[in-house]
Design a protein around this nucleic acid. Structure first.
Lengths: 208, 208
DNA sequence: CTTCCTACTCACCGCGCGGTGACACGAGAA
DNA sequence: TTCTCGTGTCACCGCGCGGTGAGTAGGAAG
């Protein structure tokens, strides 16, 4: 069992410890929320002294940058790699699919949700780094999904899409804390099916 | 000038002091954000001892309830009283008008913005009271605006409207902290005109 | 003047936070 | 062996927080 213990927690292994700290940081942020995200909380979670966070990451800011770096992988984990048959879709179909994908991806990822909520709560250099990483990942996502499809003329697609994505995001964030928004329940999967239906109608109403 | 001082701060006047505390609470929440909303901050702002907050409001919770009570007036201050000519509108026209009104109302009210952001940040008994007051005010608003208008059949208007309102709210909240969302700038009034345009298109695309 | 009540202030408590300097241990080099 | 260096731990600091009990000022009533 000594071996097992060492496997779980190597006595002296900087790389492993640093990885544990990073994982702990993401876990604290995702599960406890950004309000409880701090040096002490992360150190407790990682099971090591907070001093090591300063040593290996240069403090919370550095750790957050590391988390932001990982965020770039978000796209790859949540996007179906094959864009096959995508070029067959109309712009409306594409946006519909994108909206539904974003809805589920955000619902499934507490870490990104917390970052999104954090952005709305305060403006600071720390969170700006994180949110930039998130925003960049999102933008790249949209870009890649759009592909070579021509957006309809005469439509401010950027703003329209922003509105749709914003609506999705707000609903998902609200569902976590209060389970509802504007009188609409957001708990069961049936509720979300309604949202999906509304999304489809919304997108197709705009893009034909 | 002694008179002026007394006018600004009556030496012993419970009602005036309680009002000052309430105003200070709203000011701290609106200007400093919910993260800095606390007994000490409010007391400092009110220029009195925090003990009085406990005495007059029973602590922060009580103060927040008082703030929530005031929130009911939000509707009255942000809604044009005359609904004249409203019955001439189609449902789509009504929703468009409502969306634009909500956009401007939320942009102009930092207190409500903070409460909305708070709801997304944490789930607690305290904030639930506040958010309920806000939600109730909003629901009443929608109800009153709808009037006797028949919503179109076969459309899940509740969810659709929730999506639209959610999008507006998210954009407004994001604009305050980061000035942008999903690559769309949200600073100048020109930016907001774009949002208004997109909103119109969105609503009319759905409701015909 | 004394008494009493109300409005208000002050000093203090324990706590957890972010941050830092000093120390313990263990492996590899000299 | 001894010395050094990378790795990890511990104790401590100042601070601001929420919360509380004791005390002060000052006008009205007796």
């Amino acid at each position: 069992m000594a071996v097992a213990d060492m496997a779980e927690r190597p006595v002296k292994d900087r790389a492993a410890t640093a990885a544990r700290i990073l994982a702990a940081g993401k876990a604290v942020l995702a599960e406890d929320g950004f309000q409880h995200f701090g040096i002490n909380a992360v150190a407790r979670r990682a099971g090591c002294d907070k001093q090591l966070i300063y040593r290996y990451y240069g403090g919370l800011n550095g750790l957050m940058e590391a988390i932001g770096g990982d965020l770039g992988d978000w796209v790859k984990t949540h996007i179906p790699e094959d864009s096959g048959g995508m070029f067959l879709l109309t712009y409306g179909d594409l946006m519909e699919r994108l909206a539904l994908l974003y809805l589920d991806a955000l619902r499934a990822d507490p870490l990104v949700r917390q970052i999104a909520a954090w952005e709305l709560a305060e403006e600071s250099e720390q969170v700006r780094r994180l949110s930039e990483a998130r925003s960049k990942a999102l933008a790249g996502w949209l870009e890649r999904m759009r592909g070579s499809l021509q957006p309809p003329k005469g439509a401010d697609t950027a703003t329209l899409n922003a509105l749709v994505i914003a609506g999705i995001q707000q609903l998902v964030l609200a569902s976590v804390t209060s389970g509802r928004f504007a009188g609409v329940s957001l708990k069961s999967e049936k509720d979300w099916d309604k949202v999906r239906g509304a999304l489809k109608r919304l997108v197709h109403g705009v893009y034909g």
